[in-house]
């Protein structure tokens, strides 16, 4: 492994390590389950209704669980001086940001997505219909993390900035939620093409991947001054 690769891998794996050790992963997954379990109490036990609403509900709950984890994405490193240090490594700061986002995705978002099929069963989606929803989430979730990262980086210098992060990031989530829920609904019906929805979700993720690291790096740099 070359030196730069090693730095990238170290930043990514340290982030995963810390979020696992601090219980963040388990908390987020538990939150997702609790929220999904509570929904039928609010909506009533109508199975048809639950099934029809399920794709949208699952996307919203996924987005919210993801947002709760975003607060600490850069804030801990900002407060304890790690970000200062990461600015002084041979790796471009944008790549450092990408390493942290990848670590966050693998440690927090992937377990959340893997928990979604189980949660879907609770909302009366047949197991055979779940792969489409899962594919839509795999295509769209990178955009959620990358766009959420912009919110987290802008709010990084604010103590208890979690709510601010959510406020900044939420508007960016609208397109992903629209197409994500549409893909999920299309997957519930037979004979409706889901390909275009997945394509748009993947495109949103790709565009975020291209732009978000630069925006996040710039926001963090200015916060560190």
């Amino acid at each position: 492994m070359s030196g730069l690769m090693r730095i990238f891998a170290a930043i990514c794996s340290q982030h995963m390590h810390l979020s696992w050790r601090s219980g963040q992963t388990m908390l987020a997954v538990s939150f997702l389950f609790i929220a999904i379990t509570l929904l039928p109490f609010g909506l009533g036990p109508e199975l048809k209704l639950l099934r029809a609403l399920a794709p949208g509900l699952l996307w919203v709950v996924l987005a919210i669980s993801l947002l709760t984890g975003l607060e600490r994405l850069f804030q801990a490193d900002y407060e304890d001086g790690t970000l200062d240090r990461l600015l002084l490594v041979p790796l471009a700061f944008e790549a450092v940001v990408l390493a942290k986002l990848l670590g966050h995705y693998l440690a927090l978002v992937l377990p959340l997505i893997l928990a979604v099929p189980l949660a879907g069963l609770l909302l009366n989606i047949e197991a055979a219909r779940l792969p489409v929803l899962l594919a839509a989430m795999l295509c769209g979730s990178p955009a959620l993390v990358l766009l959420g990262g912009i919110g987290a980086s802008l709010a990084v210098s604010v103590r208890r900035g979690g709510l601010l992060t959510v406020l900044i990031a939420m508007p960016f989530y609208v397109p992903v939620l629209i197409f994500g829920a549409a893909a999920g609904r299309a997957g519930l019906e037979t004979g409706v093409a889901v390909g275009p929805y997945l394509g748009i979700l993947a495109a949103l993720s790709a565009a975020s991947l291209l732009l978000a690291p630069f925006a996040i790096a710039a926001a963090l740099r200015s916060a560190l001054r």
Binding site: G3, R6, I7, A9, A10, Q14, H17, D80, R85
Partner: peptide, 28 residues
């Protein structure tokens, strides 16, 4: 090397893990 007031240390890591991270940032 910049050693400021904020030490950049992670409470949840062991000393060996911290040193391994330091080594990785140095590229080995």
């Amino acid at each position: 090397h910049y050693l400021g007031h904020a030490d950049g240390l992670k409470a949840a890591l062991t000393i060996a893990e911290t040193l391994a991270f330091d080594a990785a940032l140095a590229g080995y």
